[in-house]
């Protein structure tokens, strides 16, 4: 039990996971920020958002990814960034799962907006859930050792 708790609050494990998730989110944001029209089309094809909100989502979501990725790695508002990242991962999982059930062959729009990047929805879902497990670990882990900005709590 003591061992478990040690691993759960290990500074270095937390740092490594922060780097993995952070880099992934920053990388994922780039293509979408530079080509919002393409990303809007991909979001529309998920057929989940009302049409009026598609473009707004395409404009804001990549910036959420970028900012939270940076915040998570730097340890500035780290708690807030992991809350948002986990929330986004849950939303992605639901969106992919719904389209998996619908049987739609969709473009993920995860890391690239290229329409050639057709993906297997089940693989996407599993990858997302894997990331979510890491995200939940970071939420539980109370390590503040590598935070630039240590929040009082």
């Amino acid at each position: 039990m003591a061992m478990d708790s040690k691993l759960l609050h290990n500074d270095y494990v937390a740092l490594i996971i922060r780097l993995i998730i952070g880099v992934m989110f920053i990388y994922a944001s780039y293509d979408k920020i530079t080509t919002p029209a393409e990303f809007a089309r991909i979001i529309y094809n998920y057929h989940l958002l009302p049409g009026e909100l598609v473009n707004l989502a395409a404009l804001i979501m990549p910036w959420m990814e970028l900012i939270c990725g940076i915040a998570l790695i730097a340890g500035i508002y780290r708690r807030g960034s992991i809350v948002i990242i986990n929330l986004m991962l849950v939303i992605f999982a639901v969106a992919i799962a719904i389209n998996l059930i619908r049987g739609v062959n969709l473009e993920c729009g995860c890391f690239s907006v290229s329409s050639r990047a057709k993906s297997n929805a089940l693989e996407l879902l599993l990858r997302d859930i894997g990331l979510l497990i890491l995200g939940v670990y970071l939420f539980i882990n109370k390590s503040t050792r590598f935070d630039l900005l240590k929040s009082k709590s």
Partner: peptide, 19 residues
């Protein structure tokens, strides 16, 4: 509570920068 307050701040920043 800290997490939520920070999340709101980060979201606001993303909205401003995105738009």
């Amino acid at each position: 509570k800290t997490g939520i307050r920070q999340a709101i701040l980060l979201t606001t920043l993303a909205v401003i920068l995105g738009l």
